[in-house]
Amino acid sequence: MDITIVKVGGAVVEDPAQLATLLEGFKKIEGAKILVHGGGRRATKVAAALGIESKMVGGRRITDADMLEVVTMVYGGLVNKNIVAQLQAIGVDAIGLTGADMNVIRSHRRPVKDGIDFGFVGDVDTVDAARLHTLIDAQLTPVLAPLTFDGAGTMLNTNADTIASETARALAKADNVTLVYCFEKPGVLANPDDDNSVIPTITRSLFQRLTADGTISGGMLPKIENALAAVEAGVKKVVITKADCLGTNNSGTTISL
């Protein structure tokens, strides 16, 4: 089976117009599909309104008990259900899930490393591809929130790029999987101030060179690491592109072996 997994995050989730454009493009994708979403900016806003400080290390959120409540509400509720509702409105029969639903994504709490305790943050152990297939075979479109669980009743905040990559890798064992990372830029840029400087293809060796010279940095590093891991695990195609390119020409940056 051909399956397309689309991950959307960043400013796209926050902007109703950009999100509507992306969902229309998502609708046009033929065959089975899964949508994975982020929502970190919305979680930060809600946390601030509740008087809860957002703490970040290297661009990654530290999730204490209070913040876990916020991200569970925001990711699993507010963002997820709004996306599901908008998909239903345009004729896509969608179902919203966290990793705890149907036991679909199991993870473990990230261990303390170099003195940094990320709290209730999960690193993925397993994605149940068969369970996802039961939904896809029923003509449903899964919409995955960036939340997993430890199998013992505790929810865990989990990077959406990682969830998209791990889900693609699990399904690629039996399916032809395309993974598309959508955000506000047209691809990976050689010059962050020039949207016309898209790097057409990135391999592992080129990624290492671009990281060493500082061309690629910050939040793009884990995104490309996840993309490379997916390709290396047998995912047919991985593209990083702009939200409004989805379902059209699939322009952007292709991640390759």
Rank of each mutant, 00 (worst) to 15 (best):
V79M: 09
F120E: 04
R131S: 13
A152H: 14
D161N: 08
G96I: 01
D125E: 15
T148D: 02
T148N: 03
G76R: 03
T141A: 11
G151D: 05
G96D: 06
Q139S: 15
Y181L: 07
A65N: 09
I116E: 10
G115D: 10
G91E: 09
T141L: 10
N82I: 00
Q86K: 15
V84N: 01
D123E: 15
E184L: 08
K173L: 11
L135Y: 10
G76E: 00
V79A: 11
I95V: 15
A65C: 02
V143Q: 03
M155K: 08
D125M: 12
L171E: 02
V143N: 02
V84T: 04
M67R: 07
K173R: 14
T72E: 10
A152F: 13
Q88D: 14
N82K: 14
Q86T: 09
T167G: 06
V104C: 13
D137M: 10
G153D: 06
D161F: 07
I105C: 04
L78T: 13
N80Y: 01
N82D: 13
V74F: 04
L97Y: 03
T162W: 02
A130K: 15
G115S: 10
T126G: 03
T98Q: 10
M102C: 10
T141S: 10
T167V: 13
S107R: 02
N103D: 13
F183T: 04
A129Q: 05
A174I: 03
A164E: 00
P142Y: 06
Q88G: 11
I116T: 13
K173M: 08
V180L: 13
E184M: 10
D125Y: 06
D128Q: 12
M155W: 08
L179H: 03
A100D: 00
G115W: 08
T178E: 14
C182I: 05
E69S: 15
T158I: 01
D175N: 14
D175Q: 12
V127M: 07
N176G: 06
E166C: 11
A65T: 12
L140K: 14
S165D: 05
F120L: 09
I95D: 04
T134A: 09
I95F: 13
T134H: 11
E184F: 02
D114A: 12
V121N: 03
I90A: 07
Q139V: 11
N176D: 14
F183A: 05
D161C: 08
A65W: 07
G96M: 03
H108C: 08
G151A: 09
P146G: 02
A89S: 15
